Computed example of a mutant assay.
Amino acid sequence: MASWNLANTQHHLLICNGSSCKKEGAEELTQSIRDEIMAKDLDSYIHTSRTLCNGRCQDKCVLISYPDGHWYKEMTSDDAPRFIDSLMNGNTIADRISHTYNGKGFVRSEGTPAGKEKNAELVKKVSKNL
């Protein structure tokens, strides 16, 4: 098995290919993301991994971006160009982010149902445990 040279890697994308996401086009999303990376000659900067279920089936298709810690929801193959451009420009697709790592834990984006209330609760809970 070959080893991937990660020396220049700036982003690692985990693309869910669990059964719920697959039914919603996860394989097409994976290929579109990879095609976009190749077309823009970004292979040495962006690494992708196809995963099995990430436990957020209601958010299908799920894409997780590291090191920024964003969990994207409802991604489709049509989002690939905009998503890769946003990564390279240091931006996000804010309306597709369901959760983000804040240094203490993952918090729901305010745009998701119950996000504001859950964020406040979680931050309080996590801060208490530090």
Rank of each mutant, 00 (worst) to 15 (best):
S3I: 12
R56E: 14
G90H: 11
G103F: 09
A39M: 12
T51P: 02
N129E: 14
S77M: 06
H47P: 03
W71I: 14
D95E: 14
Y66P: 03
F106L: 12
L6C: 05
K40I: 00
H11K: 10
T48C: 01
I97N: 02
A120L: 15
C16N: 04
G105P: 10
M75W: 02
G69I: 07
H47T: 06
M1E: 12
I84M: 05
L42M: 06
R82Y: 01
L122M: 14
K40M: 05
A114C: 13
L122V: 14
M1G: 15
K73R: 12
L130C: 09
S109P: 04
H70K: 08
T92A: 04
K73W: 02
S65P: 01
S65D: 09
N89Q: 13
R108Q: 12
N102D: 15
R50E: 13
V123A: 10
L42N: 03
A7K: 12
I84R: 06
S127P: 01
E74I: 06
A26T: 01
T48M: 02
K116S: 12
E74S: 08
E110F: 04
L6V: 08
C61T: 14
S19Y: 02
T112Q: 14
N119L: 01
A80F: 01
D41M: 08
D68R: 15
A7G: 03
D78N: 04
R50T: 12
D85S: 14
